[in-house]
Write a protein that binds this DNA or RNA. Structure first.
Lengths: 336, 336
DNA sequence: CTGAAAGCGCTTACAG
DNA sequence: CTGAAAGCGCTTACAG
């Protein structure tokens, strides 16, 4: 009973036979070429080329002590920056021997745990955690498996499971607030997202509050669901509480864009009548009019760094710092 | 020499022993529960629960005639709609037993071919092709393997490899042009992307031209690289050729947004002095001011349909239509 | 530098 | 409805 997964394709044995060597030698030509003599290597490579042989990565990963799969869960918040992050990882892994397995998360902890178990079934060599909310059960599961894990998250939070790559949303929001003060704005209000299970949102709000305390000014913060449709109501609330607000610092560019639109509706010029600042530096932040002044966190780079860190972690690199701060920058444009 | 991939985890045998059945029975409880008696099934499920057993999907897929992996290549054009498309697929597959393997493509055919070979190494049960340009060699490779393939692409193009899910960019651009004419615009100009290796761009330009011919009007079309920075130059060129242009139909929302910004710079009110229409319905299309009138192609739904089609194709569904048109709609907002 | 043997954890095909 | 045997295509560990 000969079963070939895909008829018409060859396996290691076929190549070995054709090249007059043992299957192990072919395996070594692919995986550890330096262990094979020049002559043998080039002969085997010739046969591989000639027969269009593609290594069965399924069998390869299966038979290894550690598979060549790396997992992550990406919540379906398109435009949230997760896409860039995944792209960064993906670019790193595609130059390595590892395949990134992306499972779709959603914002419920139960589903996310299911997704993780699902990926765990693929016996990954490592895991990148970029979704939230993270359930504690999940964190425990990952810890228990002793799997190399890199978390991408708010820097100042719980103890990392393993390695952490992050940015301080607190510091970023604090610095933006101080920056707005330096620009001469006196009355700085804040539009944030519910911190309910959302570390970053909470830290941004706290950063704003901290800066206002440093400045000895009255903080005016409203928070709502992280959706552009909240901006109209949020702005109304801000202007009720603090009618003389000079600038609204929005905890996301999406809020900022929607706020600018709402200003237009109300006949307020931005930034002359009311300035607006954002957070995140979306692709469109420089394109809309007025271009948005915002906090830039390089998500693509975060993804890359997370992937590189995981690779080093899997390789057992001892010189690895457990916590890495990738930083942020403030981009001044026209809206504030 | 006992090697366990992950210490502390159990395998089918462990469960079988504990439940007092054979490994095959455990396998059946998981894969074909209807073949197992109620009593045995619940006993085995109990043990699985109790021991926190996770099936080794690597071994499972490896030993099957057909793996539970499905591959796709996604080019890194964030915001191009590919993200929504992948999300749609992902949502379908996550409810199935299949794992979606996403490999990053780029816009070079050589690299894309490498990515596809890479995925083929994972012995996928099927493939979704959503990237372009597609090299002919690649198409041949896929055809040769007789792998179930679903292409997402321009509807009117080359003969599909296997199944095709698409939209007619030609028809969409044609209809938008006619729609603008119905709104009363006389002089309709077009800003498109280079059609160099880009089917959709070419079909959109052709659709515009066809509509203008039907209307017996002079077509004014400029094309440039698909990047917002082209809009300023593109608009200048349009206004040189046709200074009395009343509306610019942009072949992408990104162009439309950048064009609106350029209009502001020039002191042109949109839509009063110059109207602008887009294509694609980006998330931000309704949010910017003025909100963009555009062509909506539901990319998320396209992804879902592609995934469902592939699943049916893998299952050998004979009633499957080879070509599916998912259609488009025109969304009237403020910019035109 | 190269190879023969064993095994990874499942599923398939056959049998009862 | 249940099981014993064989095998999927590789890699590992040992030997020479």
């Amino acid at each position: 009973m000969l079963r070939r997964l895909h008829a018409g394709t060859f396996n290691l044995q076929d190549i070995a036979r054709r090249a007059g060597v043992s299957p192990i030698t072919v395996s070594r030509v692919i995986n550890k070429p330096e262990m094979v003599s020049e002559a043998t290597r080039s002969r085997v490579l010739g046969v591989i080329q000639e027969m269009g042989f593609v290594l069965n990565r399924l069998a390869s990963s299966f038979s290894r002590a550690s598979s060549r799969i790396v997992g992550t869960v990406a919540p379906p918040i398109i435009n949230s920056g997760i896409a860039e992050q995944v792209q960064g990882m993906s670019d790193v892994f595609s130059r390595s021997d590892y395949q990134l397995l992306v499972s779709p998360g959603d914002l419920s902890a139960e589903n996310e745990e299911r997704q993780i178990m699902n990926i765990l079934g693929w016996q990954p060599a490592g895991f990148i955690l970029q979704a939230f909310p993270e359930s504690d059960a999940m964190r425990e599961t990952l810890k228990l498996r002793q799997l190399p894990v890199v978390e991408i998250s708010e820097l100042v939070g719980k103890e990392p499971i393993d390695c952490l790559v992050g940015v301080s949303n607190y510091e970023a929001a604090r610095r933006m607030t101080l920056f707005l003060a330096e620009l001469g704005y006196e009355r700085i209000s804040f539009m944030g997202a519910h911190s309910h299970g959302n570390d970053r949102a909470m830290r941004r709000t706290l950063g704003y509050r901290a800066a206002m305390a440093e400045l000895a000014r009255q903080a005016v913060a409203v928070v709502g669901p992280l959706h552009p449709s909240y901006a109209a109501g949020g702005l109304r609330k801000i202007l009720e509480i603090a009618p003389n607000t000079e600038v609204v610092f929005c905890a996301s560019d999406t809020f900022a864009i929607a706020t600018i639109q709402e200003c237009r509706r109300r006949g307020l010029r931005v930034p002359e009548d009311l300035a607006v600042a954002g957070f995140g530096d979306l692709d469109l932040a420089p394109l809309i009019v007025p271009a948005i002044t915002t906090v830039r966190v390089d998500r693509y780079r975060m993804g890359r760094i997370a992937a590189e860190t995981l690779l080093r972690r899997i390789a057992g690199d001892a010189s690895l710092e457990r916590i890495q701060d990738v930083g942020f920058s403030i981009v001044r444009r026209e809206s504030a």
